[in-house]
């Protein structure tokens, strides 16, 4: 089974926490062909959510146009140092991934 490492950083500055999430994912469009001329089947993240201390604060619905190994930048209010940020995703093939971090000073 393929593995999809995810890196997340959450930096608190003032009362705003900037979240950067980088997911290792092919984001295959289904339009490309391999060297043998065979179409590569699509595989792309459809839903990505961000949770703060277990509560969903952001839900993204995505298409094939999102880049390979996508990078997301979000901003949230109301998080404190040490709070837990979780990012979950699921792709069109049913693969899932998740990662977490704690809020640190920015």
């Amino acid at each position: 089974m393929a593995s999809y490492p995810i890196r997340i950083r959450a930096l608190l500055k003032g009362d705003v926490t900037s979240i950067t999430a980088i997911v290792s994912h092919p984001m295959e469009t289904g339009l490309r062909k391999d060297d043998a001329g065979k179409t590569i089947p699509p595989q792309y993240i459809q839903v990505l959510t961000v949770e703060l201390n277990g509560k969903k604060v952001m839900e993204s619905h995505l298409n094939t146009a999102v880049s390979t190994n996508p990078v997301f930048n979000f901003k949230i209010k109301g998080a404190k140092l040490g709070d837990k940020i979780v990012v979950n995703w699921v792709d069109n093939t049913g693969e899932k991934g998740s990662g977490e971090t704690t809020v640190i000073p920015g």
Binding site: V16, T29, L31, V50, L52, K55, K56, V57, M58, E59, S60, H61, L62, N63, T64, A65, V66, S67, P70, V71, F72, N73, F74, K75, I76, K77, G78, A79
Partner: peptide
């Protein structure tokens, strides 16, 4: 001009600011 124009939608609920960044094809 992409084959499928809609690249993504981001829904903000409690606390998330309407400020998003993403890399697109």
């Amino acid at each position: 001009k992409n084959p499928f124009p809609l690249a993504g939608s981001f829904e903000m609920t409690e606390g998330a600011l309407p400020d998003v960044g993403v890399r697109l094809k």
